[in-house]
Design a protein around this nucleic acid. Structure first.
Length: 284
DNA sequence: GACCAGGTATTGC
DNA sequence: GCAATACATGGT
């Protein structure tokens, strides 16, 4: 990966990085598509990004901002060529899924953004999740100019009335958001766990009302660097059954075990290639 | 109108 | 423990 100061922004040349695939593959809910690029918001920080001559241009940021924030946000120090090679060697189906969207990168999101997004994700659709996130940001987050609004701070959401939250189309998830906001606001070390076992971290997340195993896995994978976890939603269950269980409705535990065995510490990447492949190919 | 969506909590056995 | 069901909302 190389990067340069360019036109008051930073130009990134990187293998295996497709902006559209990365933003729209279902891992992230805080972007807005524009004719010439995307607005991306991470916590309180916006950036406008666009494809530019086989590279990605992050507009109007300094080198320091790039190095301190966006470099890791876009996971630019990871060798995805090697990841895909390793996965493809073991598994032809996965090789095909990765070839289908070879420019996907797993983002390193702000944990609170990610938790909020995936609480909204349950029994919901991605466009709706994005819309509700935006509504919450408009009402309870800080203005960021042209980019929109920052993610509401946990405390600011924790003091909102449940009825009012429901008017943002959160539905039955409103009390879950309140519980998450209260717990995170009350403990500024809530997401700290660099030295914790993945299982410990998962149990802590699942103490939040409305956070079960799947949402906990998503938060760990997409914002806490646990790339070995394998969030299994309806799409993943479907494609895993088709690919590895001869179409039979194998139990979730068997699917998880299969993923762990085949993909090991790369299970999270495998999950995202498979998820995107299943969803866009409508594989059932 | 029935059915579904990046699930989870609750209930009943 | 595990299967069935409700849950808000909007799209097909």
């Amino acid at each position: 990966m190389d990067y340069y100061r360019y036109r008051s922004g930073v130009l990134v040349k990187s293998q295996d990085f497709d902006l559209a695939e990365t933003l729209t593959c279902g891992q992230f809910f805080r972007y807005r598509s524009e004719p010439d690029g995307y607005w991306v918001i991470s916590g309180q920080n916006p950036v406008f990004v666009s494809e530019f001559k086989d590279a990605v241009l992050l507009h109007n940021i300094t080198l320091t901002e790039f190095e301190n924030r966006w470099r890791s946000f876009f996971d630019l120090d990871r060798d995805y060529g090697e990841i895909k090679d390793t996965l493809a060697q073991r598994d032809t189906a996965l090789a095909e899924a990765a070839r289908f969207a070879p420019g996907i990168r797993l983002l390193n999101q702000e944990p609170w953004d990610c938790l909020l997004g995936f609480i909204l994700s349950q029994n919901n659709r991605i466009p709706m999740i994005m819309k509700v996130m935006e509504t919450l940001a408009e009402r309870y987050g800080g203005a960021l100019g042209e980019a929109g609004y920052g993610t509401p701070e946990p405390y600011n959401l924790s003091v909102v009335d449940e009825t009012e939250l429901r008017s943002c189309k959160t539905g039955f998830r409103a009390p879950y958001i309140l519980d998450a906001a209260k717990k995170v606001a009350a403990d500024h070390t809530f997401f700290d766990g660099l030295d914790s076992a993945t299982k410990t971290l998962k149990l802590r997340l699942m103490e939040i009302n409305g956070v079960g195993p799947k949402i906990a896995d998503c938060v760990m994978l997409f914002s806490l660097g646990r790339r070995e976890v394998f969030p299994a939603d309806v799409w993943i269950v479907r494609i895993m059954r088709k690919l590895y269980f001869n179409g039979k409705d194998a139990p979730l535990a068997d699917i998880q075990a299969m993923a762990e065995e085949r993909f090991g510490d790369l299970a999270g990447y495998a999950q995202q290639y498979l998820y995107h492949y299943a969803r866009t190919q409508k594989i059932a």
